[in-house]
Write a protein that binds this DNA or RNA. Structure first.
Lengths: 114, 114
DNA sequence: CAGTTTACATCGACAGTCAAGGTATGTCAA
DNA sequence: TTGACATACCTTGACTGTCGATGTAAACTG
């Protein structure tokens, strides 16, 4: 099933931070992990992810460091900072507030929603 | 409480259609009604609403007609078409699918969400 | 009769996302 | 060893949705 990409707006940062709250990860890994965790609902594009990671790094929500695998492959890992963890909690609150608001409006018009 | 405006992206059309599923309404009315129904969570801007209504009219999801109040005030009412009603149902499905996806990802990282 | 509310509308700017493309290296099978 | 594919990072230009500001005009209110 597909849904409008625009629904995603603003939630990607939250989802990224959420992934990182479970342990340090590198970009490419996040794309797969997000897809896996959401049961294929979300397919984060790299063109969205990398600029987002850079922005999160700049704002201090994540810290980046490089690491090379035994095989010799370079990876850029991201670590959730204390600030980022707080930001995640705030975003989760916002999300719940927002989604409940939507459901309230929908429920008012169509009580059979469930 | 505030939340990122960008979270709204894509959901406004659904909310508008939802309002209209409850009966014909004019623009200005929708702004107040949405605010009321969502318990002040959503404050739809007129600069967002009117272009959106025009787009929905163009796509055939709503039909517009003019009506003058006894007081002499002109109003442009919008009526949800059959096509619009179907579109609303589709958008609601998308929304539920999307929000459940988000909650799944958040839940995986923070099981204490409940 | 001045100020506020109602009512519709447009404009320029901005943020988030995407598709497409670019670079480079490791893996694996023919 | 060559060619295809997966990994891994990144940038660019375009598009969409929203916002804030602003405009216009009529009706209500003190």
């Amino acid at each position: 099933m597909k849904f409008e990409k625009t629904l995603l707006s603003g939630s990607n940062a939250m989802l990224i931070l959420s992934l990182l709250s479970d342990g340090d990860k590198y970009g490419y890994e996040m794309v797969r992990e997000l897809k896996r965790r959401s049961e294929n609902v979300f397919e984060l594009q790299e063109g969205t992810l990398y600029p987002l990671l850079h922005a999160l790094e700049k704002s201090g929500d994540v810290k980046a460091y490089d690491k090379t695998t035994p095989a010799g492959r370079e990876r850029r890992y991201y670590h959730l900072s204390e600030k980022g963890a707080q930001r995640l909690q705030e975003k989760i609150r916002e999300w719940r507030f927002f989604s409940e608001g939507v459901n309230t409006v929908l429920g008012a018009a169509a009580p059979s929603l469930g």
